[in-house]
Each structure stands twice: as structure tokens, then as C-alpha cells.
Nucleic acid binder design. Structure first.
Lengths: 206, 206
DNA sequence: TTGAATACTGTCCATTTGTACAGTATAATG
DNA sequence: CATTATACTGTACAAATGGACAGTATTCAA
């Protein structure tokens, strides 16, 4: 994991201290006040960089919308990483802005390394051909681009679906791994293809 | 301490759950949304009463300004549970005594509750018909008995295999969920059937 | 019956808070 | 030297949020 700068580390440890002491992370203004920063954007910049390095997750538009993903002291007992379980993925918005987070799930961080992980409950049997069943929890790494053959979370008609992503002479095909479902083909000229992330694992409770 | 009403207790436990899952308490609107209340004032009323009974403290004017003073039961453990990943399952010995543990894996303890959990790497395609593939990590709860229909880790000829356990007029059938594999039938009189545990989940890394 | 406590709906407003935009400064790097 | 990443200042705005006011309904006990 990429290392934090001194300033960034100070900010992160203040966030962690706030959570310990008050049960909730600080606002941007509270951080600025604590360090004597006169600019909010300075704090935002720090938060963005800390997020990009995978230590925290920013939730767009929410008050105190920062979740600490990885503490400073590392291992700290659990070898687990907490990732959000989202109910659905609305189009357009980045994953970090998803409102309807139901819960969070602990993953083994040796198995699934961050940042940008989230989980999604699989609906339907469209991927049953490769052993992904209705009700499974899909583990997704957030990314916009994908390679042909990847299983991705695609936003089609504003709805999030798990499909195999295939590039074929310019067109893009979203293929369900189930004979009962047909391909969704996006012609080469038609631009709008949104990918929310790539499947990197699943969890099933039987 | 004065007791909470049913509605108040529901609200408080939601607040605690939010703090556990997201690291910050919910806003009034998030509480209202979660319970389907159409009035914010209703939630505020609840919060005021919960505060007056001493369970929480409200910080005026601050977003997510609620501190939980006293939890409902506060198990407060880490949300991860570590369970061994065993390479093979020798007959006779209890799982806790297994020598050849390769590694340990962190599970979400909300999803998979102990005790007696261990994990096993699935070898072969014998259960691919129900979405359990070669290389998957099977999550097993240690138990000797099983009900007909359970997926179990059975010790057959000293080898651990994942099979569906079926009781049929006295006989026991271990069935692979794959047309290419045939049943293993243990006649009624032949006693020696050892079950190491029951499948309660899987994890796959793609 | 009366009254108090609880459980709600609905609307409006002021504050808190996140976010965007427009900059400056410094250090490291090629 | 130009470029990039980081570390800041300062202003403005829209959304999120808490808080107040005005009600209604139900339960429960006096």
C-alpha cells in the first residue's frame, strides 16, 4: 500500500481519534479548525489523496462522509478489511456516492486487497453458468475500464447487472453466462457504456 | 436505568448498527428513511426520549450529532473471525487438532457464526452443478451428524470429499452434484460413515 | 372522562456541511 | 527549464441536516 505523507498521516490519525472519542468522524471544517487550516479545500485535497491511497473511503454528499478502511497501525488484530455492501448501483454516480448501502462486510484482506472494493448482492440466475448464483455476494473492485473477458458490473439502462464484458471489432457485448439469457450488444458508435467495477470474487452463504 | 419502549429500542439498535458498519451514526433523515417514517419530528421525538432515559447524548446543531452512551448489549468484538484453512482432513482427529493448517482466513462473523468453523479448498468439479467450483474455499461447520440433503465433508476411504448427504431407507448416499460422477452408497448395515462437517458457505477468488 | 405519554404526519427555515472554482507556493523530477 | 505532486488560501453555492411549529391518533392510567 502506498505510503502517506506526513500531513496526510496527521489528518488520518485525527479522523481515527475522532471516531474513537466521539463515535463519528470529523467534518471537513472540524479538521481544518483542528489543524488551523484556513482553507477547506486544503482538507479536501488531503482527504482525496488519502482516499486514493486506499486508507479511507469518501461518501459523496454525506455529512461526516468518511469511512476509515485501513488504520495506521495496520494489522491491529483483525486481518479483515471492511467493504460496503450496496443494494443497487445507480447510474452516473461514483460508487463512493451510493446512498443505499445496507451493510458492510468483512473480507480476508489477504484474499481481497483494496482499495475500491465493494460488494453487491447478486440478483437472478444470469451468471449461474459459471457458478454465480442468485443471492451470492459479489466482490467488486471499482474501475471504469475492463478487458475483454472480464466479469463486470455494467450499468445498462440505469440498472446494475453482472455480465461478461466482450470487445468484438469495436462493439461491446455484455454476455450472461446462462443459455436462457441473450447478449446485450452496444454498437461501436454508441458511446454510453458505464462499467462500475470488475468481479474479483464471490461469497455464498448456503 | 429506565427502560426503552419497543420503538425506541429499534431506533437505538439501528444507530448502533450504523456506527458498527459505517463508523458514524445515522442522520435523522436516514433513520426516518430506514423505518419508513415520513416525519422527521417523529425521529427527533424518539431521540429526545432515548436521550432523556440516558442511552444517548445529542449534540446540538451537529450533523450526525448523536453519541451512544450505553449500548444495548455491546459485544463489541471485531467483525472478523479467523478460521483455519486446512489442507486435508485426517479421520478421527478433531478439527482443532489438525496439524497441517496452511493458513487462516478471516470471515465476516455476521455472515458465518462459530464455533467449530474451518475452511477447506475444494478440489475437483464434483459439485459444479450447484456452483461450487474447483479452487473455491468451502466454509464448514464441524459436526458429526447431518440431515438428508445437507452438503457435507465426508471422510470416505480416509479422504475428505464434499458431497450431498442423502438418507434413503437406511442406506446413506453421498451424491456428487455433477452428472459425470456417480453416487457412493453406504449400505445400512455397514456402520463406518464419518462426517467432518457441514457446508455453510463458500468463497471464491476469480 | 380526562389527561399525560407515546407515536406519528407535514411544512418551513437556519445552520451545517460538502463541493466546486480560482488561485499561490514549494519541493521533487526529468 | 518545464512538469508534476503536494500543500495551502479564499470565495461562493447547493445540498444535507438539525430544529421548530402545528397538528392527529393511540394507549394507558388516574
Amino acid at each position: 500500500m502506498e505510503r502517506l505523507t506526513v500531513s496526510q498521516e496527521r489528518v488520518l490519525s485525527f479522523i481515527i481519534a475522532c471516531q474513537k472519542n466521539h463515535g463519528s468522524p470529523p467534518t471537513i471544517r472540524e479538521i481544518a479548525l483542528h489543524f488551523g487550516y484556513r482553507s477547506l479545500n486544503n482538507v479536501r485535497q488531503h482527504l482525496r489523496l488519502i482516499e486514493r491511497k486506499g486508507y479511507i473511503r469518501l461518501i459523496q454528499g454525506k455529512a461526516r462522509g468518511v469511512e476509515v478502511v485501513v488504520g495506521l497501525d495496520m494489522d491491529s488484530g483483525g486481518r479483515g478489511i471492511q467493504v460496503p455492501l450496496v443494494g443497487s448501483v445507480p447510474a452516473g454516480k461514483p460508487i463512493t456516492a451510493i446512498e443505499n448501502r445496507e451493510d458492510s462486510i468483512t473480507l480476508d484482506q489477504n484474499l481481497f486487497k483494496g482499495p475500491g472494493l465493494f460488494t453487491l448482492r447478486v440478483q437472478g440466475e444470469s451468471m449461474s453458468g459459471i457458478g454465480i448464483l442468485d443471492g451470492d455476494i459479489a466482490i467488486i473492485r471499482q474501475q471504469q475500464a475492463a478487458e475483454s473477458g472480464d466479469i463486470v458490473v455494467a450499468l445498462i439502462d440505469g440498472e446494475a447487472t453482472l455480465k461478461r464484458y466482450i470487445q468484438q471489432n469495436g462493439s461491446i457485448i455484455f454476455r450472461a453466462e446462462n443459455p436462457g439469457f441473450s447478449d446485450i450488444t452496444i454498437p461501436a458508435d454508441q458511446g454510453e457504456v458505464t462499467i462500475a467495477g470488475k468481479l474479483i470474487g464471490i461469497i455464498r452463504k448456503v
